[in-house]
Amino acid sequence: MTIARKGTGAFGRLVKELKRIPGIGTKSAERIAFHVVKLPDELAFALSDAIRHLKERVRPCAVCGNLSESNPCEICADEQRRGRALCVVEETNDLWAIESSGAFAGRYHVLGGALSPLDGVGPERLRIGELVQRIQEEAPEEIIVATNPTAEGEATAHYLACLLRPLGVRVTRIARGVPMGGDLEYADPVTMAKALQGRADV
C-alpha cells in the first residue's frame, strides 16, 4: 500500500479525512479505511449515506443549541418543560448525560464550550448573549450551571454567576462528590474534600 502511505489516491484521501476526527491517529485511520475497503458495497454506502443524512438533517436548535432534527428541538418544543429551571451545559453530550438520568425536567442551554484563554475562547465565543436573552424572555425560576468540574468549567460557572445574578434569577451550581456505588477509598482527595464541604443533613 505505498499509495496509502504517501497519502494520495482514494485510500489516502479517506485516511486523511478520518484523521481529522479527534482521537483518530494515522494507525486507527488506516485500520478503519482497510475495514471499509473490505466491506460489501451496500454497507460502505450505508455508512457514507448515514454521514450525509446526519449533516443534512441534524442542526443545532435555534433556542438552546441542542443537536436535533427539528427546530426548535423536542425539549424546547415540550410545553411541560417551560418556565422551570434552565440547565446550562458546555456541550450537547453533557445534555444527553443529564437527560438520560431522567432527574431533570426543565430546559437546557448549550454554551458550545467553556472559557479557555489558551484556545482564544472568551465569553463572546460562547452562547452567553443568547442565554441572557432567554432568561429575560422565558423567566426561568432557576439557572443550574452544569459545566464540567475542570478549571475551564469552574471559570465559566463563576463568570456566569457574576453575570446572571444581577438579572434577579437564582443561580446554582451542580454538587460535586463521591460517585454512587463507589468505594470511598477510591475517591481522589480533591473530590473527597469537595464532598465533605458539600455535606448535607441525613
Partner: peptide
C-alpha cells in the same frame, strides 16, 4: 469580570 472568573479556580 474575565479575571474575576479565573481567580476562583486559580485560588482553589
Amino acid at each position: 469580570a474575565f479575571l474575576d472568573a479565573w481567580d476562583e479556580p486559580y485560588i482553589a
